[in-house]
Design a protein around this nucleic acid. Structure first.
Lengths: 227, 227
DNA sequence: TCAAACAAGATAGTATTACTATTGTACGCG
DNA sequence: CGCGTACAATAGTAATACTATCTTGTTTGA
């Protein structure tokens, strides 16, 4: 048993994959496979072969691969929120809290021994390349009603809260927070695949620090604007 | 024949759809269908039924539906660039040029009689909901090598150019430009489907003006930052 | 004017995907 | 002992994303 585990929305899975051997295997191996193959080429059939189980068995945990993806992405956002929560303990200054949040958002992700079953580095790549696909669908409204996007929304609210603490007059706290959260990942994708869209470079060592620097400029200067 | 037509990359289509009746129909009707069904539910078979042609005939114009989507999105970015080019005629001040670009980027899109075959309003909705899918794939690097993303990159470069005219010291011109271009559409998507992520509201009349206002705050304050 | 070239319709076929349904079995618990 | 749970095994289906081939009708240019 784990020391810590996140409680994800009930609607995400048919049965809690953290509770059984097979469930944990599904989560663990699907991260590796989606990272390697990309979400479109990833199928339950291939996953079943890899974990030496059957398609039907996987379907008992996740309604379809879309829900599984949302499950993984949600886990990621909860993890980040947990890290930020932890990071701002005993810090009173809202500016400092926001700075810490940005740093954690942008920093390179490494294995977290608290969650031995999750390959956070692979999951991070999945978030960068696939997370938008969770909501860019025709069923977004139904999925949202079921609370499937709480992970992202919750962290956005937290960051927007820091922003409003700094300047309660600022009228676009949530817009700025969501824009920054998206940009944090998009810029890394661009750096790797469409480098002419960004100043970040995949080859530079401090890419993640540079990304945090960019986000800080964008956020802090926007907050204290005379509107 | 049209007065004006954009020259899109050769690699986007197997044969130029602007040249034939069938080609124009494919483009025209695919816009309506993707807007209505969403990209995943849209198929060449359904399109063929609608235009009373055959799947095989459509495949003679576009290798697959992914390329067709890129074709449409590219058309959109070229159209925006053309509108901005037109809008900044005889304007010398870089600040003003950037302001115009932001306004055009964020404003509500209406039918452009210059291009009678294209339903710009539907295409705009497609860009908002589907454009990220053009590059969030495992073949992004090959597609990029073929020059399929020139439309987006070109406009990004243009906007980054305005930014650097205003402040040549600013080190994240392209990052800021790409972030703003993405945010411009994302915020509208959020306003409609995930309203807790934005201050914009689908119901407010001046949503697009508000969006432009948000982007201006973000961009102009970032540019003149002391780094 | 005749033939070659091309556009596009008609038809058929394939591998894969995303499921659903049913049955059988091994294990643990009261 | 009997019951439920977990899961394997197998089969089947509709739809998708193509590919291939053959035919017809139209244009064109020598």
């Amino acid at each position: 048993m784990n020391v810590l585990q996140f409680v994800l929305s009930e609607n995400l899975s048919l049965r809690d994959p953290q509770e059984t051997e097979l469930g944990r295997k599904i989560v663990q191996e699907s991260i590796e496979m989606i990272d390697m193959l990309g979400f479109e080429c990833f199928t339950f059939k291939k996953l079943a072969q890899r974990i030496e189980s059957t398609e039907a068995s996987i379907y008992r945990y996740f309604e379809n691969k879309h829900k599984l993806l949302i499950y993984l992405i949600t886990w990621y956002w909860q993890w980040l929120e947990y890290k930020i929560d932890y990071g701002i303990q005993n810090i009173a200054s809202p500016k400092q809290k926001l700075e810490i949040a940005i740093r954690i958002l942008a920093e390179r992700k490494e294995k977290d021994p608290t969650f031995p079953e999750i390959n956070e580095e692979a999951l991070y790549r999945i978030v960068i390349a696939e997370s938008d696909k969770t909501y860019l669908t025709k069923q977004v409204d139904e999925d949202n009603k079921e609370g499937l996007f709480r992970g992202f929304k919750s962290l956005c609210k937290m960051i927007a809260g820091f922003i409003r603490e700094i300047n309660p007059e600022f009228e676009f706290a949530h817009s700025l927070a969501s824009t920054a959260m998206q940009a944090a990942h998009q810029q890394l994708f661009f750096a790797r695949h469409l480098p002419s869209l960004t100043e970040l470079s995949d080859s530079q060592q401090d890419m993640h620090a540079q990304n945090a620097h960019f986000l800080k400029i964008m956020i802090f200067n926007s907050i204290n604007s005379a509107t």
